[in-house]
């Protein structure tokens, strides 16, 4: 299979009055057709900014893409003119945003908002677009599609609105769906329903998905591949099982240990706070918080490389080898 998306050395900065904010530094990865990639990281890790930058959705200025290349379906996205970029957005790449409460225009009916993309990208007539919108609403399992099309956003619940957002993102049958924390604003039960829905749709439509979240539990439920970002860098990436069972980055390990466990062993938080993106530390950005950091971690930035030969595609950026320091058990 050939990759649908190839990101190579993407670096994004924001020029602010207080200095240059290094939001995304040298991020590279491939996404295969039909693959679901979970991107995990805390606020400010660059997980959202890097996808927004790909589609030219980062305001410039203050944003600036310093270097890198993003090839989508064989076509370079960075530096593409605005018209071609608009044609890709919404048609080939669908977007779902975090908050379904504010992602829909409050004064336009659902039908009107759903038909817009269909008319623009696929050149459908309004009648055709309305019929297609009803099908889509049915696809995301909302009852009474025709009635929903006449309703306004405030008349739907949060979960339903997020379903509508998903339906809109899928309207033009995109090759890639980017979901930016789509379940963060929902309760856990609704969250589970949405994840089940996306899993179902992914199998039916074969769309590649980038699912951005700070919730490892959500990633476990949906992704084939997971990639962990910290301070704008990729620290670890690999097949979901390999990363969860055998994390090689101290940060990934820290994230996994800070999850609530059913056994009730208590939470182990990661000490310290994320670095100031205006003054990144020398070397590995996680080194100041890393109990396993070696002197080299504080000097040189580790490259992303194969974690071990046995698992294909499991990559880590670390100078230390987590297996040699300790096996299970909390650090310290």
């Amino acid at each position: 299979m050939s990759p649908i998306l190839e990101v190579d050395g993407l670096t994004v900065v924001f020029d602010t009055d207080e200095g240059v904010v290094h939001a995304v530094s040298d991020v590279s990865y491939d996404l295969q057709v039909g693959e679901t990639l979970g991107v995990v990281g805390e606020s400010g890790s660059g997980k959202s900014v890097h996808v927004l930058a790909m589609l030219g959705l980062v305001p410039m200025p203050p944003g600036r893409i310093v270097s890198g290349s993003v090839r989508f379906d064989g076509k370079e996205l960075l530096g593409l003119n605005r018209r071609d970029l608009r044609a890709i957005r919404g048609r080939d790449i669908g977007f779902i945003f975090q908050d379904p409460m504010t992602s829909l225009n409050p004064v336009l009916s659902i039908g009107r908002q759903m038909t817009e993309g269909l008319e623009q990208h696929l050149g459908m007539s309004h009648g055709q677009a309305l019929r297609r919108a009803a099908e889509l609403i049915d696809l995301v399992k909302i009852p009474q599609p025709e009635r929903r099309l006449r309703q306004y956003p405030h008349e739907l619940s949060g979960g339903m609105r997020q379903r509508v957002m998903i339906a809109m993102a899928l309207a033009c049958e995109p090759k890639l769906l980017i979901a930016d924390e789509p379940t963060t604003a929902l309760d856990v039960t609704i969250q589970a329903e949405i994840i089940a829905l996306v899993n179902d749709l992914k199998e039916r439509l074969g769309t590649a998905i980038i699912w951005i979240t700070h919730d490892l539990g959500v990633v476990a439920g949906i992704a084939d591949t997971v990639q962990v970002m910290y301070a704008g860098r990729l620290l670890e990436r690999g097949p979901i099982d390999a990363v969860f069972e055998d994390p090689r980055s101290a940060y990934t390990l820290g994230l996994l240990r800070s999850l609530p466990q059913a056994a009730g062993t208590g939470l182990v938080p990661i000490e310290g706070a994320p670095p100031d993106l205006r003054h990144l530390p020398e070397g590995d950005p996680f080194a100041p918080r890393n109990p396993y950091a070696t002197p080299r971690c504080h000097r040189e930035t580790p490259p992303l490389r194969q974690a071990d030969a046995s698992v294909d595609g499991h990559l880590v950026a670390a100078w230390y080898d987590l297996r040699q320091i300790d096996a299970p058990g909390p650090p310290k």
């Binding site: 608009r86 957005r89 977007f95 945003f97 504010t102 225009n105 908002q113 990208h121």
Partner: peptide
């Protein structure tokens, strides 16, 4: 600055639209 504007922008709408 509302999210729905970003959302329609991500859906490929022009500034005028």
């Amino acid at each position: 600055e509302r999210e729905f504007v970003m959302s329609v922008r991500a859906a490929g709408a022009t500034g005028l639209r």
